[in-house]
Nucleic acid binder design. Sequence first.
DNA 1: GTGAAAGCGCTAACAC
DNA 2: GTGTTAGCGCTTTCAC
Lengths: 370, 370
Amino acid sequence: MPNGKKTTIYDIAKEARSSASTVASVLNGTWQKRRIKKSTAEAIQKIAVKRAYSPNLQARGLRKSRSGLVGMIIPLLEYRFFSSLAEAFERAARAEQLYPVVVSTLRDPANEQATVRALISHNVEALFLAGATDPDTLSEICRRARVKHVNVDLPGSKAPSVISDNFQGAVRLTGAIVNRMRSLDPASSRQSISFIGGAPDYNTQQRLAGFRSCLDEAGFQVDPSWLQVSGYESYLAEAALRGVYAQLGKLPDGLFVNSTTAFEGVARFLQTLPLDEVRACAIGCFDWDLYIEFLNFPVIMVRQNVHGMIAEAYRILKGPRVPGAPIILVPTEMIATGKQSSDEDHIGHVAEQRASSIGAARTTKPRRSV
Amino acid sequence: MPNGKKTTIYDIAKEARSSASTVASVLNGTWQKRRIKKSTAEAIQKIAVKRAYSPNLQARGLRKSRSGLVGMIIPLLEYRFFSSLAEAFERAARAEQLYPVVVSTLRDPANEQATVRALISHNVEALFLAGATDPDTLSEICRRARVKHVNVDLPGSKAPSVISDNFQGAVRLTGAIVNRMRSLDPASSRQSISFIGGAPDYNTQQRLAGFRSCLDEAGFQVDPSWLQVSGYESYLAEAALRGVYAQLGKLPDGLFVNSTTAFEGVARFLQTLPLDEVRACAIGCFDWDLYIEFLNFPVIMVRQNVHGMIAEAYRILKGPRVPGAPIILVPTEMIATGKQSSDEDHIGHVAEQRASSIGAARTTKPRRSV
DNA sequence: GTGAAAGCGCTAACAC
DNA sequence: GTGTTAGCGCTTTCAC
């Protein structure tokens, strides 16, 4: 470790009384192809280890005009769905021999654009735009820079998108809630069910549509006051549910909570009620969090297939350029949990499961109750 | 967008009938310093926008021998403490005009090393090693590559470390648990309290030491069977608690759960018990998760100050090289939650709270282990 | 089998 | 005020 700079192939070449090109090919693994003598190669490798050589990937990238990086932007990391998505993305990137760079953008369009530009400047091979607030502007930036990209979680109209089958997932979740409502109170004929949380984005629209579609089919008269698209923030969902409660004088018979964030607010409000009252309500949540399984009332959850989504997205990026902006739907999985949720038999009745290219979505069995 | 390649400063220079250096200085913001005419600058900027120019950061980095990247390795993203740490890291990086790259390593030493080497090869300016299983080997790799770095969450002996004040946090958490035990059952004289979860790593040792220290002071005879360092995995913690329960024929009077991962297993077991039994146990958890607040029994949690830790780490990296491997302790925060947790008055009695945050971080020698 | 040389896109010293 | 030039560390013909 002589001087104060990193060792380069030239340093090694000098010490090995060889040339930079020989050293380079030894050190990047192409030496067999170049028919370098094994002894030369070994000598060079030894020196490289001794001097703690590490290749300068910026130089290599510049020369080869490829970086080996693959980028993903994501709204935030502190939300289980997104952190799972990020982990799946990382894993898949490595399998593709790419180096993953995940950056969160806090749902800020300006931040999203700046981040995309930065990643492009770092010459990423491809870009995953997950949950972007304005995917089409980002697509435009990518297009002009000729960077392959794909939307994930929220669709755009200028690039392929891979998203959960929100409609089907909502149909099935709603069906499970309805079944549970009926088993909780078989006598009642006119029951109410609220949809809480979400923003006017594509996913919420699809989930709402699935919700309504299932209810229509089940013979419900959907009252507009049931639909509380309050925003994703927990306090908004909490306020919305409080409003519903005040209006009805009780909880609705069923509750479709749109996202675990909204669920936080819902849980906070439910905490203020007697447990029996809470247990008399059939509760479902679109999205999954482990801890929801430990609440003292049962919750049916929809879990999105992050691995499937990521796999599809990579498939699209690797395949030939597709025309238009197809939307690939990935089936979701339903999970029923919690105390007293002994209604296995009902789950999945209303909406039939579909198989998928990725692997069939499954309905898992509820955990053992007390 | 004429040809099929990205525009470079040469393309723009040609179109502007100017030179590459002029274009470069206009586009990287140093043109005022170079006294370039405003009109020239504007003309160049216009062309740059029109051609969707984006600087090649690999080339810039190569030339300036700095990348503007700052890296962090982290065990996994799907754990709330780590995802918070990653978010705080990103935020701080941006404030420092650096581009954050977070990579998870799944607690695999080989993966950690490979990732550190990869980040070094990308010429990161500095490296945050968070929760590394083998920080000293990584330090050695960094040292040989002359890359500044700092350990976070788990300390090493070859570089500065910024970690939570696990000892103090455990003392205070234990104190709060003891207070609650006493208020739940003021009569009893001989009570038991279990420590569940964790691995034989530095943090667990410190927490155990704090646990014992507090109990000693409070007059408890610590029984070895109370200490269940079962591993972090939830099922191990679950099994450990089940064992304790079987042995005692009931829950211990107090429970110190080491990490939210272990808590998952604990919660799963507690679910199988009658609620009254659970509520008769004073429960604390070292680490915080929002959903634990919504359980139907109160839990006192210790929340680590991720922003403080990250701020300290950046401070160290920016400051002059420090000799040795100091350990900076960042105070934790205690949060009491849940129904029936009206024992606020007790919290913090046993161990006094300290004015916290970054200012109060202090340097110590590593503590003795248990 | 191996070396010399050009060049990836950019910056910074030095010209003029 | 602006252009010329020499690299940053690497890969990749092409030459021998």
